[in-house]
Design a protein around this nucleic acid. Structure first.
Length: 216
DNA sequence: CAGTACCG
DNA sequence: CGCG
């Protein structure tokens, strides 16, 4: 069944179990992808995509920007949530309304009520970009879930365990898919395999990922 | 180790 | 040489 995103009635939607506390909502955001992509363009006009450096000194293959009260950043100093864009010193663009609504509804569909993200990290993948296995652990409250939205080119998401020793499960993700993890799955390692070349009618050669978090 | 390099 |  189709989710009634931004409508008046909460539509039924079948979450696909991934692990205890984690679900995939296939195609959940497809109907609002146009609005989400327009909002990404608007955010990027104020806070351009940039490739950040890890504490190890390497440049990430994924280009990032973000919006909300704070956004995740990395540099040679380390990882952190920051209220201002390091490039401009200005506050991050405000969280677009379609972002807030999608994140809240997807979290609810996954069983996490009253999710109000204060940070959205926007990742742009080009062919060859990847995100190695990591934990989201720079947030203050691990009771709040993570909501991850895929737009554009398909990719393979890896979902591992709480340690690196657990062999990750490969999850193919397409345009509009949403992954939500929290509770017992909140600190599980995850990543994205190297993006294959391709073309999507709405995003061209790119894949975008929106990651919603409650950071503060 | 939110990294690359290397190897099977 | 590409993939994992």
């Amino acid at each position: 069944m189709t989710p009634d995103l931004f409508g008046d009635t909460p539509g039924a939607f079948a979450p696909e179990p991934l692990a205890p506390g984690a679900v995939v909502l296939r195609g959940y955001a497809a109907g609002v992808a146009g609005a989400l992509l327009a909002a990404i363009t608007e955010v990027a006009a104020g806070a351009p995509f940039r490739q950040m450096k890890t504490p190890g000194g390497y440049t990430m293959s994924v280009a990032m920007t973000g919006c909300g009260e704070v956004c995740w950043v990395t540099d040679q100093t380390g990882y952190r949530y920051q209220a201002g864009d390091p490039l401009s010193g200005q506050p991050w663009p405000a969280m677009p309304e379609p972002f807030l609504r999608l994140a809240g509804e997807a979290a609810a569909a996954a069983g996490y009520r009253d999710f109000i993200p204060d940070a959205c990290l926007i990742n742009r993948y080009c062919p060859g970009s990847r995100m190695s296995l990591h934990q989201d652990r720079d947030e203050r409250d691990f009771d709040q879930p993570i909501v991850s939205v895929s737009l554009g080119l398909p990719a393979t998401f890896q979902f591992g365990g709480e340690t690196r020793r657990v062999r990750p499960v490969n999850v193919p993700l397409s345009h509009g898919d949403v992954v939500v993890w929290g509770g017992p799955a909140r600190l599980r390692y995850h990543g994205v395999l190297r993006l294959k070349q391709g073309w999507h009618p709405l995003t061209g050669e790119y894949r975008y990922n929106l990651t919603f978090r409650r950071a503060l």
